[in-house]
Structures are given as C-alpha cells and as structure tokens.
Design a protein around this nucleic acid. Structure first.
Length: 517
RNA sequence: GGCGCUUUCGUCUAGCGGCUAGGACACAUGCCUCUCACGCAUGGAACACGAGUUCGAUUCUCGUAGGCGCUACCA
C-alpha cells in the first residue's frame, strides 16, 4: 500500500543552522512538496550538555526567511507530537524496555573512565560481540547484581546487542545498495540513565516510526550508521515500514581539504549561516546571508544546485520550478565544493530581476552608513530626490543591466559621486594619469568658460554650447571632465551627470581638479 | 589503522557503449564607447591511473592512487 510521503528535518539546537543543514532541509522540502507529502520539523535535543539557548528560535526564523515551510513540528503543531525529543522521555523508555525484554539490548555499567582505560589498553577496542562478555553488563552479571547496582544508584547505559557476521543492506536512493558486515558495528549506546534520555540512534528510529516518516533524506555523514538503523528497525519489528534512505553528498571547503566549516567563511569572507548569529556564551558574532545582503531566493537557488541539477542547462529557477524538477535519484554522489563566488552571481541575477526601486530600503541604509543624511546643507527632501535620481540612473531601461551589482551595497562605490565630490584626486589612478596631461588644465579652463555662459544647464542646453566648441577647437574634454567630477573612470554620460549636479557644483569640481592636478 | 562512500575543465555539473565530451561560474581577448560596467562575440581549460569485457570504453567489471565521511554515554 502506498503511504503518504512524510519526511523530516531534525536539527540539534546546538548553535546556528549550518548552511549544509539548510540544503538538507531544502531537499526534504522539495521532495515533500513534489509528492504532496508532509515536512516535519523535529528538534533532536537528546544531548542535554550541548543545548544552546536561542538556537531553536534561530532555526525557525532562518527557514521563515528562506521561504521553506513546514507542515508540522515544533512551533507548527501536528498530530504526532511532541516534536521535541526532550519531551518524549516516557515514549523512549517504553521502547528501550521492549528491546531489553526481547534480549536485543542489555544494560552496561562500564563508566566512561573504564572505557577510556580499555581503549588505551587495547588497540582498536570496540564494545561488541567479541568483547562484551569481558565487560560489566547484564550479560556477565547476575540479575541480582544488576538490580542491586541500579538500586544503589549506579549510572548505566543500554546497549544494542548486535549479532555479528551478518551482511546488512541499506537501500539508498542516491547510492544504490550499500552493504556492510554487522561485525564491524559496535554495540551502540541507545540510552543513558544519567539524563534519562536516549541517544540519537534510538530516538531517531522511534520517532521516524511513530511519526510515519517514509523517506530519510540526510547528510552523508550518516551513511556509516545507516546499517545500525536498519538493524534497529528489524529489532523493533518495523522492517516492513522502514523508511527509504537518501544520503546527500557533503558540502566541502572552497579551497583545501575537508568539509565546509565556519572558519572557511571567516577566512574567505562569506557567511556559512543563513542569519547572523550572536553566540550567547562566547559573545562571538557570525555573519549571515540575510545581513550580507543576499536575497533568500538566491541562496535557495544556489544551494539547490550544489549536488543536484535538473539535467538541462537551466540554473536560475523559482522554488516552484525546483519542486517540479527535483529528483533525488539525480543527486550527485561526490561532495561539492562550496563556490561562494557563484552564490554571488546568483544574487546578482535575482537582484537584476527586481525593480531598482525595491532596493531603496537597503540603499537607504548604505547612504546613512556613509553619512549622507548628516550633511547639513542637504535637506532630507533633496536626499530623497537624489536617491530617486540614482535609482533612475541604475534602473534605466537598457542601463540597469549595466551595473555589475551582486549586492545593493555595491551601489555605493558606483554612485557615490552623485552625492559627494571626489575628496582628493589620485594621480596614480590609471584613468587619471591617462586622461589628465600637462595641457589638460588649459582645456578645462576653456571648458569652464564655456559652461559659465550656459543658462539652461540641461543635457540639451549644455550640448548646444559645448559640442560646437569641441568641434571647432578639436578639444576632447570628456575624460578629463569625468576625472574632475567623478575622480576616476566611472559614471554616466558627462552631460547627464553635470545636469544632475548642477552648474555650480560642476564648475566647482572642475576648478577643484585644475587646482589639485 | 578498520569500515563505508566517492573520482569529467580551477569550481558546480551534463553525459547513462560509438559525441569535434555540452552548459554555467571564474579567467583572458575583441567589439561597442566620452569612462566603468552591462551586452555581444571569441578563446584557453576536464574524462585520476592500470588492467580487463567489447568491434568499440568517459560510460560496464576489478585493482591502484587521491578525496570525503564514520569509527563517543555528539548529533
């Protein structure tokens, strides 16, 4: 019988959501939507020592920003709760007991110190069928001893009793049949009496079963423990409803070896978290895609293509298109280097798809950061007018795409000359050196003289005077003119820029250049 | 060390026995032009290696090498 597709994303609240986790969640989302299924948000907080306050809220906010919606789970409600594992203690206890009663698990009293000593003593020590009879557990101790040790308050763990010598098969949608011998698996800890909580493995299987999860889509780091999970499903008698697995390739460092880490982002200057994160313990701040000026659709689009592609040349696509095209079996198997340069290109694409007027809030902030509003002679009204002028310049049909902008903040160096005159003229600047020669000052004085005579300082008004003058004298004033107004080789047509700045400011900047160059 | 996964341009990848091995990012050059950029055009750039199977291997099999992951009372 076909079951309704149900998948889950189940992070641990141990810090901000890593960008690799975002991709895993995205693939789960795409898969769920495509099959008309449910996406569950579960919090796996079974390690009480690593809990970080605020992490859960952070994760929820991050997905909200990214546009990835869940159908049920923590903060979303649903029929299969509670969705926070720390609130499911009683459920797990019941299933631990089931395994114990069926002789598929046992109680072990070995302390962490004893285990460390054992590992130091024996090379490659593993707690399994070959060693368990030499340890202190319910298989080697009498029932009375076990009961009294527990009664005396000794801490213990419950371990899964793995039968050696069996080939365990994992049917992976991306990797096909993965086969591993049960002898290389150890008797995993399923439950710790110290905090009355199960470990990941037990909680994961119980929850996935109870929440009727049909597909487990997770990172490749889980592949080695997948056989253990298969064995657990069997031990519980749930083999016939066991979910199908899909282990995603990992995200790798842009340069060097290893998987993507926070340090790479710091080193190369790109975020590895969706949102900015302030660590409550260390007070350390980590940058986020949102705060860096990325559009959520760009981040999602970029991430989707890291390990999957629709099989054609299409790269820019909406979330809905991705839902249509997504195919788990077409995911790549090898790890993908995190190419943040391409992430910037995606942002560029999505930025250009917008009307520049939509950038106003972000641009506003850039202006404020550069002190534009605080200039006394510029009334707020004037600033608004200038902003609109700039937006118009950037957004003009056929002109908008001229701007190489990955982020709205890139607009500042490209348009600052609208707002502020060049503070100094850099003689070393390639464009300045090339276009401001010995005799240029003379030509510029002549230009000023021409400009002085103009009453109508519009583009047309300027052209009417300057063009004939240039024609008759053979002067080519534009590049030097640009040096004077902009300071370097940038900006719009000189008549347009001069018209925008006005006669006084234009002449002032030219004279300024004559004096300092 | 053991176990597993993996391997096409610098990067992300297409390819599912026969192709001048395709696209995108990045890079370089040219055109356009009063500058920058955009745009357009062009270019360099890859099947890890070795055995098989086959008329024929990038594609299938097995080795080797490299890469990645796991190897906790963390997930």
């Amino acid at each position: 019988m076909e079951r309704k597709v149900r998948v889950r994303f189940a992070p641990s609240p141990t810090g901000p959501l890593h960008i690799g986790g975002v991709r895993t969640a995205l693939y789960n989302y795409l898969f769920a939507r495509q099959h008309g299924g449910d996406l569950i948000f579960r919090i796996e907080d079974t390690d009480s020592t690593r809990f970080v306050p605020g992490a859960e809220e952070y994760i929820i906010e991050a997905f909200k920003w990214l546009g990835i919606k869940f159908d049920e789970g923590v903060s979303f409600g649903g029929e299969h709760g509670p969705y926070r594992q720390s609130e499911r203690r009683d459920i797990y206890k019941q299933y631990v007991k089931q395994l114990l009663d069926a002789d598929k698990a046992y109680i072990a009293f070995d302390t962490p110190e004893e285990l460390d000593a054992k590992r130091a003593e024996i090379e490659n020590f593993q707690y399994d069928a070959s060693t368990r009879m030499q340890m202190r557990n319910s298989l080697t101790l009498s029932k009375e001893e076990v009961d009294s040790l527990i009664a005396e308050g000794h801490q213990y763990v419950v371990r899964f009793k793995i039968e050696p010598g069996r080939d365990v098969h994992v049917d992976d949608i991306i990797r096909g049949d993965v086969n591993i011998n049960s002898s290389v698996l150890d008797d995993k800890v399923l439950y710790k009496s110290a905090d009355q909580l199960p470990t990941y493995h037990l909680a994961n299987i119980v929850d996935d079963h109870l929440m009727e999860v049909t597909h487990v889509i997770r990172g490749e780091e889980w592949l080695p423990s997948a056989p253990l999970h298969v064995l657990l499903y069997e031990a519980f008698g749930w083999a016939d409803t066991m979910p199908r697995f899909a282990h995603l390739p990992l995200l790798l460092k842009p340069v060097g070896n290893g998987k993507l880490s926070k340090r790479d982002g710091d080193k190369l200057g790109f975020p590895v978290f969706p949102l900015e994160w302030h660590d409550p313990k260390s007070g350390e701040m980590s940058s986020g895609y949102r705060e860096q000026g990325y559009l959520p659709q760009a981040v999602v689009n970029f991430l989707a293509l890291l390990g999957w592609n629709p099989g054609n040349d299409q790269e820019v696509m909406t979330l809905d298109e991705m839902v249509q095209l997504f195919d788990l079996s077409k995911c790549s198997k090898a790890g993908a280097r995190f190419d943040y340069i391409k992430a910037q290109w995606f942002n560029h694409q999505y930025l250009l798809a917008q009307d520049a007027i939509d950038w106003t809030p972000a641009f506003d902030k850039i202006l404020r950061d550069n002190g534009i509003e605080s200039t006394p002679e510029r009334e707020a009204q004037v600033v608004d007018m200038m902003k609109l002028k700039v937006i118009e310049y950037v957004d003009k049909e056929g002109n908008k795409k001229k701007r190489n902008i990955s982020f709205v903040s890139d607009l500042w160096p490209l348009t600052k000359f609208f707002f502020v005159a060049p503070e100094t003229y850099d003689k070393e600047d390639k464009f300045v050196r090339k276009n401001w020669k010995e005799d240029t000052s003379d030509m510029m004085r002549q230009l000023v003289a021409q400009l002085e005579t103009i009453d109508d300082f519009s583009v047309e008004g300027q052209k009417a005077v300057v063009d004939p003058w240039a024609e008759t004298t053979g002067a080519r004033p534009w590049n030097a003119w640009r040096v004077a107004l902009v300071g370097t080789g940038q900006g719009p047509d000189m008549y347009e820029l001069s018209a925008f700045l006005g006669k006084d400011e234009t002449i002032r900047r030219i004279n300024n250049a004559i004096n300092s160059l």
